[in-house]
Simulated assay, not measured.
Amino acid sequence: MSDPALSLLLDQGRDGLWAAALVFLRVGTLATLLPVFGEQLVPMRVRLAAALGFAAVLLPMLAPLMATLPAGAGARLAQGGAEIVAGLALGLMLRLFVVALQVAGTMAAQSTSLAQLTGGTATDPAPAIGQVLILGGLALAALSGLHLRAAEYMLLSYEILPPGRFPDPAALAEAGLAQVARIFGLGFVLAAPFLIAALVYNLTLGVINRAMPQLMVAFIGAPAITGGALLLLWLSAPLLLPIWRAALWGFMEAPFGAGP
């Protein structure tokens, strides 16, 4: 093989490796924050394998786009930093949907006196209702094809945030604030049945206490609110978790523009 041919082969190999590295920098960062795949309960090797798998799936479709990026050591260093920032921003947007389940579980537990049922045995300290909602939501998402939606979301991200360029800080901050507001609204919607039940319970308890001051309503009300909360969780979870999944799917189909 002649020297020019060898040089051309080496250049093509180097460009291909750099394209794969750029894809992995964004996809790998995003995958570490992805619901289900980025959970702390998932072993690090599994998370790394998932990130490599996503990068391998997307690389053939993104290689022509990566080939248009300018070469040079300084330019490539900036491109790598931009891809990490883009993956981090896009991953955090998705990670907030898990926070929505945590917020809903905390609100539900605080309103129904179940906040300290399991103590701090979970990886992330959360009430029992929150853990049930989180595990149920993640299981529902995984069974509904989260890996396919995630691959589409990663591919769509290159249209929203072009490769090799740092996102606009002002636009990113505005999108982040809107997403935080959306997540807390979603958490309140998911916890609404428990908040309404707690309101009715406390009003009823107050009326009974005024009508019969000698009756120890606390001894009667505590088991009632605990049993009622568990029954309400059993009845409402199959209805609430699809709402959360629909909000997650909506955001992944139209990032920064979907509502809860």
Rank of each mutant, 00 (worst) to 15 (best):
I134W: 01
I134F: 00
G136L: 06
G136E: 04
L138A: 01
A139S: 15
A139I: 03
A142L: 14
L143K: 08
S144H: 03
G145S: 05
G145H: 09
L146C: 02
R149L: 08
A150K: 00
A151E: 02
A151K: 10
E152S: 15
Y153C: 04
Y153K: 03
M154N: 01
M154A: 08
L155A: 14
S157P: 14
S157L: 07
E159D: 08
E159S: 10
L161W: 10
L161C: 04
P163Y: 12
P163T: 11
G164L: 06
P169D: 09
P169G: 09
A170K: 12
A171R: 13
L172N: 00
L172K: 02
E174T: 12
E174N: 12
E174G: 11
A175I: 02
A175Q: 07
A175G: 05
G176A: 15
G176V: 06
L177G: 06
L177S: 07
A178T: 08
A178I: 02
A178Q: 11
V180N: 00
A181C: 00
R182C: 11
R182P: 02
I183V: 15
I183E: 03
I183L: 10
G185N: 08
G185M: 06
L186H: 13
L186M: 15
F188G: 10
F188N: 01
V189I: 15
V189F: 05
V189K: 09
L190K: 06
A191I: 08
A191H: 02
A191M: 08
P193A: 03
I196Q: 04
L203W: 08
T204L: 14
